[in-house]
Amino acid sequence: MNDIVLANIDKSFGDKRVLTGVTHTFAAGGVHGVMGPSGCGKTTLLNILLGLLPPDAGTVAGVNPNALGAVFQEDRLCERASVGANIRMAAPAFREDGALRPLLAEMGLEAKTPVFELSGGMKRRVALLRALAAPSELIIMDEPFTGLDEGLKQTAAACIRRRQGGRTLIVVTHSKNDLSLLGGSLSLSLPGCFTTG
């Protein structure tokens, strides 16, 4: 597992310059916070790290595209498939729902339930578990606690800490409290952004 090194990343959408000369190193195995207000390019930066967007200039080093996990801003679940199927498609090592049971129990979920029957908070927990269960070296989380109340945040954060397993975690959030729940600290504050929490 390598450090992830961003060097002079630029990204624009038409006339709008979103990222300018972003240079940063995320140490391997750490929990790193990326913070800033809406529209300052946090999600764009995550998409560049995930390889979903090419930077206009600059380089990204240390990301193994075959060992990524992600919690996207939206849950991106297959709505008609069961909770178990949604996790197993990303983590085929869990061959059957039985193997997933201990993991699901940590978040209070049932393997057989179809996703469309779940509440928003439950779907978020499925998205979190999918990212944790999938084999990866780097997990990128965009606002991982969206839709979770304070109690569930604590539960989810504890589960993430237990299951991180030495992997690098990059978390975009608006809240320093969320970051500290994960045992991480502010790593990158994008230019012109301010932090809350």
Binding site: N66, C78, A85, R130
Partner: peptide, 24 residues
Amino acid sequence: KRLLEMAKIFRISRLCRLRYIYAA
């Protein structure tokens, strides 16, 4: 497209994509 991006990131097999994303 967002589900296809998710499938790409998680390296979901063609069979699973067919079964869970395209079939639905």
